[in-house]
Amino acid sequence: MSEVIWITGASSGIGEAFAKEFARLGGYRLVLSARREPELERVKAQCLNQGLDSDDVLVLPLDVTDTDSHTDKVKTVLDTMGQVDMLINNAGVSQRSWCVDTDLEVYRRIFEIDVYGQISLTKAVLPHMRGRQSGHLVVTSSVAGKVGAPLRTGYSMAKHAVMGFFDALRCEIAHEGISVSTITPGSIQSQVSVNAMRADGEAFGIMDDQIENGMDADRCAQEVVAKLLAKQREIPVGESAMEMGLLEMKRSNPEALFDMLEGMTANLRAQGVY
Rank of each mutant, 00 (worst) to 15 (best):
R42Y: 12
K123H: 14
I7Y: 02
G238E: 02
M163H: 14
D101T: 06
L32R: 01
L60R: 09
D103W: 09
E21S: 03
A19M: 03
T122V: 08
I183V: 13
Y107S: 11
I188R: 05
C47G: 06
G51V: 06
V43S: 04
P127S: 06
A144C: 15
G201M: 08
Q50K: 13
P185F: 01
G131S: 10
V224L: 04
M129N: 02
L104D: 12
G245N: 06
L126G: 03
I7D: 04
Y116Q: 14
F111V: 11
N213C: 09
P254C: 05
M207Q: 15
G135E: 00
G15W: 01
R130S: 12
G82V: 06
L60Q: 11
N89W: 00
P236G: 02
M242E: 12
D218L: 13
M264H: 12
S193H: 04
D259K: 12
R219I: 10
A19W: 00
I188K: 04
S2T: 15
T153D: 15
D209T: 13
I14K: 02
E176S: 14
V64G: 00
A196E: 00
V237I: 11
A256E: 15
I5N: 03
V93K: 11
T182F: 07
V106A: 03
V74T: 05
K250R: 15
